[in-house]
Design a protein around this nucleic acid. Structure first.
Length: 1023
RNA sequence: GGUUCCUUAGCUCAAUGGAAGAGCAUUCGGUUGAUAAUCGAAAGACACAGGAUCGAUACCUGUAGGAACAGCCA
């Protein structure tokens, strides 16, 4: 091979090399881009490195003579390291200067573990250039050792690097003996190339073959033989052929080279891969955690210092030192590795291979997957994803535990294990024990002293069919088995209540598919537990249900999320962020806590728990509810309302009552729907909204006067009955979420009226929605009233006119008759709510109202497709005249480029955007204009109301009772004289004054301000 | 590393393949007849990057951050 020739892209070796590289690897980009640069290509070997280094040294000298730098682009790797080493040798022996050699790497090389690029360069400097003697000649690398080199395309900034060094003079490119293996790791987003370089000339062909067709396999495992450390014939002890390279799909190159050590005895993955490749099992640690006999000097030593021995010498260090002394260590370093620790003592734990009993759950795996699909999972994803995936990757259930406390395995075995008996009941055990007594001639006394726990049960000896003694298998049953057996154990099945369960699956009729209802005991309608139980309780219940009855064990399961602290961290005693539930309940009540937990987030979402949230619930929900109830109770007591009058048909009640009852039944419908769908959060929120926005903030507020004014007759009784029904229904609806408050309120209400025969809310029936109460049009127009009021209030706010100041009128543009009739029915309500005299409607008002079109994306989008954008823009740009044409013709031809596109009136929403000269507000398709001129008449009335307000405040300051009569004297003042005269009756009525008089001047009294004027006013009780 | 979930206003949460909505907090204002209460208004947000789509906060992929699981704990 011509080592110094300039490589062209038509060079077959170069092409071949390129074709090995993934297309999107930077390395390849670079080679393609800089193909004009002289490139050395060489087979990776010690010989090549010597030859290449000699040639480079010559080139360097040449440049050196001209006083130039020489830049080599290096794909860093082990051969390149040898080239460095050679150059260093030239430097030492022939005085070659290195000052003007600049190196950089195109990719990253990991000598046995991860290094950043920077630390790699450091590594080269310190280990190779300064201590060149460790490589390559002096290190002893045992036969069979493999160094694996991985390349990541981290080096995205190679362009910059090249610019920094002022271009490259030469590139060095090594081709490993076993070639390059390029692949894209699916889903990793990172392109990785792995090259295997063997330093062992006799690497077994079959090991290399492992990597053939490796293209799509993302990961690999490699065992490294270090049998020299062991005493004795380890191949024999292992019972396999352990010292070679095998592949496994669970090792990645993310944090290292992809070379890992494997120990089939100490990990499930390792075991599987070891078994597949028949490398046997070596157990070098005994059950005390000490090295076994054939570990030479290490025998008898603890693997880890889990006894807190102050004199403990770390065996890891000794092993490392030992390897180093023998010249077998390529590099030794410490790195972090996660492995389990005891949850109580924090001592290290090692996995250990033990004999165990298993349930062959894999035999019913498919059926479990299938039946799982019939379970209603909340949320769905947990059932399909987490649980479903887990079931499809199911392994056999390791049933036995080498513990002391628990349920003993009911299995007896002969000494050689060839005969087994599994006992199904105490009776069977007794009878078998008596049989053993007879056959074996022993005298076990069980009556009266039978204890089924360890160690007593272990003393019972049974006899096999062939007459041999049998001992109990010493292990216990996994406690999770107990939890999964709950449905049967709680009914003492099969000894009792057999009729509550289906026919069990038997060996003769393995799967019966008999999912039915059996006396209500099985399967469960609903269970709930933390999502962390997916592989615990949820699984064991399911497994036993399927294996015993070919049935699900539960029809619905809610897997709750976790309650985290307010910063989203798991609560843990160690971090001190635990909230004591008992203190919380003590302080904030169980109901507020429950309500907060339920309504704040869906049960399956993890919840950031914050006490502030509970306070808010207390204030917002329970405070409002309590106040509403208090309000009701106050007047109901005054009027002795006890629901003894006959129920007034809804049709005979005022509109506002019909409205709140309609909303109430809509609420019942929604809550029931949500509850049945296992969505308590949505249910609770619906109750909140009803209470706040409809009952308290609208119904009660608007109806206050009805409760305290007038005689106890029809209208008042309607109000009482209506509000009572709302409160009663709320207690029933909320009972599952807030059981105590609901019951308290229910009993208070029902205690008086005895409407319900039950004494507790929890015994009463859940409410059922009565469709005849529901009037959607009514609900819609109340919505309109709320919307319009809100808009008027917002205009008042904007122009700074307080609600107390009456205004003449509002204008509402209405585009259709329906809306108009709807609003007309609620005119009075709006007028009093926003303190205006009139409502006027604008219909055909071309030129008066400025309209705006809003394209209806849903209908248009489907039809327009790609033209949607330009159509929407065109619609937005239509002028008022064009809009009227559209309104008149119900259609309009839009000019889009060359094309005319027909749109219909249904394709747009028409909004009255503005009414020139008026103060306007709009939201969605509702627009309101307010007449903000304050006429003298209006001002008078406004001032009267101002006065009322001021006087009421003074009454309050003076601690007058609400029934106290007063007389009032006001100092004359230009701005209010007319008000006082013209509204004298009104003011008197409002403030319970017998007389209000204007006087020229007052010597005593209070200063008040009405519309920026200061007045003196004097009030006293008539007594 | 794997599987699954999450990321929307300062905070806690909605909704939606068609111009993002509440509550709390903040600011301003209103209100005797539920004043240890209550109402209104203002301001304020789709973690980031790609992709399919006429159109994405929503669907897909990736990145970042967070959580849970993978105990001979229950």
């Amino acid at each position: 091979m011509d080592l110094t020739s300039k490589l062209q892209s038509n060079n077959p070796i170069f092409d071949n090399y390129l074709s090995c590289l993934p297309t999107n690897l930077t390395h390849r980009d670079m080679l393609t881009k800089y193909e004009k640069i002289p490139t050395y290509i060489y087979s990776e070997s010690i010989e090549a490195s010597i030859v290449v280094a000699a040639e480079i040294a010559e080139l360097i000298r040449e440049k050196q003579r001209k006083g130039q730098n020489f830049v080599i682009g290096l794909s860093t790797g082990s051969t390149q390291i040898r080239i460095y080493a050679e150059l260093v040798r030239h430097h030492k022996e022939e005085g070659l200067s290195f000052k003007n050699v600049i190196t950089f790497s195109l990719d990253e090389y990991y000598p046995m573990s991860s290094h950043s690029l920077k630390s790699y360069h450091q590594y080269i400097k310190t280990h190779l250039l300064n201590h060149i003697d460790i490589l390559p000649q002096n290190i002893h690398i045992p036969d069979g050792t493999i160094i694996l080199e991985t390349v990541h395309d981290y080096c995205r900034d190679y362009e910059k690097k090249i610019a920094d060094v002022g271009g490259i003079d030469m590139m060095l490119l090594g081709i490993g003996r076993t070639g390059h293996i390029g692949f894209n790791e699916p889903g990793s987003g990172r392109n990785t190339r792995t090259r295997i370089i063997t330093l062992d000339p006799v690497t077994r062909q079959e090991d290399a073959n492992q990597f053939q067709g490796f293209g799509n396999v993302p990961r690999r495992a490699i065992t490294m033989g270090i049998d020299t450390i062991l005493n004795g014939n380890t191949r024999e002890i292992a019972g396999g052929d352990p010292f070679r390279v095998i592949t496994g799909d669970f090792v990645t190159t993310e944090d290292g080279t992809g070379i890992v050590h494997t120990a089939p005895a100490f990990g499930a993955d390792d075991y599987k891969v070891g078994k597949k490749h028949d490398i046997g099992i070596l157990i070098m640690v005994d059950r005390q955690g000490k090295f076994t006999d054939y570990m030479g000097d290490l025998s008898g030593r603890y693997v880890k210092n889990y006894k807190d021995d102050p004199d403990y010498k770390d065996v890891d260090v000794e092993i490392a030192v030992g390897l180093k002394l023998k010249g077998q260590a390529f590099k030794i370093e410490k790195y972090e590795h996660n492995y389990p620790h005891c949850w109580r003592t924090d001592k290290p734990i090692i996995y250990y291979p033990l004999d165990a009993w298993f349930i062959r759950t894999t035999a019913v795996k498919d059926r479990m997957v299938e039946l799982n699909k019939t379970i209603n999972w909340k949320p769905k994803a947990t059932g399909e994803g987490r649980f479903g995936n887990w079931l499809s990757n199911l392994v056999d259930w390791n049933l036995s535990r080498s513990r002391y406390w628990g349920t003993p395995l009911p299995v007896w075995a002969t000494e050689d294990g060839s005969e087994l008996k599994c006992i199904g009941s105490i009776a069977e055990l007794m009878s078998e024990a008596h049989k053993a007594n007879k056959v074996l001639g022993i005298n076990q006394l069980l009556e009266g002293s039978l204890d089924l726990h360890k160690p007593y049960v272990d003393q019972i000896i049974l006899v096999s069919d062939s007459g041999l003694p049998m001992q109990r298998e010493p292990d216990l049953i996994d406690v999770w088995f107990d939890s999964g057996a709950m449905p049967y154990a709680q009914m003492h099945y099969p000894f009792e209540n057999k009729n509550l369960f289906p026919e069990p699956v038997t060996s003769s009729s393995p799967l019966t598919n008999n999912i039915k209802h059996y006396g209500g005991a099985f399967p469960a309608d609903f269970i709930a537990e933390g999502v962390d139980q997916t592989r615990g309780w949820f699984y064991t219940l399911h497994a036993l249900g399927v294996m015993l009855f070919d049935s699900v064990a539960y029809k619905t399961v809610v897997s709750n999320g976790l309650v985290l602290d307010k910063n989203g961290n798991k609560m843990s005693k160690r971090h001190g962020n635990v909230i004591d539930p008992f203190l919380t309940i003590e302080k904030y009540s169980a109901d507020a806590t429950r309500w907060y937990l339920i309504t704040n987030a869906s049960p399956w979402d993890s919840l950031k728990f914050d006490l502030e949230g509970i306070k808010e619930v207390q204030r917002k929900y329970f405070g409002t509810l309590y106040n509403t109830y208090q309000f009701f109770a106050l007047y109901a007591n005054v009027d002795n309302f006890s629901f003894e009058e006959s129920y007034i048909p809804v049709i005979e009640r005022p509109e506002i009552d019909r409205w709140i009852l309609s909303s109430l039944h809509t609420l019942i419908k929604n809550v029931t729907l949500q509850m049945e769908d296992y969505e308590p959060t949505a249910a609770g929120r619906a109750i909140e909204v009803f209470l706040d926005e409809q009952l308290s903030n609208w119904y009660v507020r608007l109806c206050r006067r009805r409760f305290w004014k007038g005689e106890y007759e029809h209208d008042k009784i309607c109000a009482y009955q209506t509000l009572y029904e709302c409160l009663e229904t709320i207690t029933l609806l909320m009972a599952p979420i807030a059981p105590f408050f609901a019951d308290w309120m229910f009993q208070n209400l029902n205690g008086v009226t005895k409407r319900d025969t039950q004494t507790s809310v929890h015994l009463a029936n859940y409410p059922e929605a009565d469709e005849s109460f529901i009037d959607e049009e009514l609900e819609e127009r109340m919505q309109l009233a709320q919307g319009i009021s809100s808009l008027v209030l917002s205009i008042r706010k904007k122009v700074n006119i307080k609600v107390r100041q009456p205004l003449q009128k509002i204008l509402i543009p209405v585009m259709d008759v329906h809306t108009r009739t709807q609003i007309e029915k609620i005119e009075d309500l709006i007028k009093s709510e926003v303190n205006i005299k009139d409502i006027e409607y604008l219909t055909e008002t071309e030129g008066f109202i400025k309209k705006k079109l809003k394209p209806n994306f849903k209908t248009l989008g489907a039809r327009m497709g790609a033209k949607m954008k330009s159509v929407a823009a065109a619609i937005n740009q239509l002028n008022q005249a064009q809009i009227s044409i559209l309104e008149k013709d119900k259609a309009f031809g839009l000019q889009i480029g060359e094309e005319i596109i027909e749109i219909s009136i249904e394709d747009v929403e028409i909004i009255a955007e503005d009414i020139p000269g008026w103060s306007v507000a709009n939201k969605d398709n509702l627009t309101v204009a307010l007449d903000i001129t304050i006429s003298p008449v209006l001002l008078e009335e406004g001032n009267a109301r101002e006065l009322v307000n001021r006087i009421q405040n003074i009454r309050k300051d003076n601690d007058y009772k609400v029934t106290d009569r007063i007389i009032v004297e006001i100092e004359e003042h230009q701005s209010i004289n007319d008000s006082v005269r013209n509204y004298n009756d009104y003011i008197c009525k409002e403030i319970l004054a017998d007389i209000i008089s204007l006087v020229p001047s007052l010597s005593e009294g209070t200063d008040i301000e009405v519309n920026d004027e200061t007045l003196k006013i004097f009030i006293k009780k008539t007594s």
